[in-house]
C-alpha cells in the first residue's frame, strides 16, 4: 500500500473547502490475520462528515471538521490549524475491494482491508474411457 499525493481526485475533493486548511492525518498501518488494518487520527470528525471512497485502486479518506468556535473567540496560542483531513493511498492488488469496512470511534478511523482469499487447489478428476 503506497501513499499517493498531488492527485486529481484529491484536488477535486479539496476544491470545495479551499477556504480552510487541509491537513494530513497521522496513520498506522499494520497486518492482521486476514489482511491490513489502517488507523487514522481524525479528531473532530463525525461519521456523517467522513467520506471514504475507493476508486480504481485508490483509497481516499476525507474528513470534514465542523466544530465551530463561539462568536468573538480570539486566538492566543496556536499549535494546530483547524481544518479538514485528507489523505489517499494506493491499494495493492490483493486487497478485496468489496469487503473493505470502516468504523469511526472517538475520532479514530479504523479501515479493515482484507486480502482476497487465495484460491484453494482444486483436484481435477480424470475420466477414463
Amino acid at each position: 500500500m503506497n501513499e499517493s499525493t498531488n492527485d486529481e481526485n484529491e484536488s477535486q475533493l479539496a476544491a470545495g473547502v479551499s477556504q480552510q486548511w487541509v491537513r494530513t492525518p497521522p496513520i498506522d498501518i499494520f497486518e492482521t490475520d486476514d489482511g491490513l488494518m489502517l488507523r487514522a487520527d481524525l479528531p473532530g470528525v463525525t461519521s456523517e462528515n467522513l467520506e471514504l471512497q475507493v476508486q480504481d485502486n485508490r483509497l481516499t479518506l476525507f474528513g470534514r471538521v465542523t466544530a465551530e468556535l463561539p462568536e468573538g473567540a480570539t486566538l492566543l496560542h496556536q499549535e494546530y490549524h483547524q481544518g479538514d483531513f485528507l489523505r489517499s493511498f494506493i491499494l495493492s492488488d490483493d486487497v478485496d475491494h468489496d469487503r473493505i469496512s470502516a468504523k469511526l470511534t472517538n475520532g479514530v478511523l479504523e479501515v479493515s482491508l482484507p486480502k482476497i482469499p487465495r484460491a484453494q487447489p482444486r483436484k481435477i478428476s480424470i475420466q477414463t474411457d
Binding site: 473532530g44 468573538g72 480570539t74 496560542h77 494546530y80
Partner: peptide, 26 residues
C-alpha cells in the same frame, strides 16, 4: 515529532477556551 496533544488557546470574552486534539481518548 510534535508535542502531543496539539493545543489551541482562545479567549472568548471572560472565558478562556483550550481545545486539544485527543483522538482515541475517552
Amino acid at each position: 515529532g510534535r508535542p502531543f496533544p496539539s493545543l489551541n488557546l482562545y479567549e472568548i470574552g471572560d472565558t478562556y477556551l483550550i481545545t486539544a486534539e485527543l483522538s482515541s481518548c475517552v
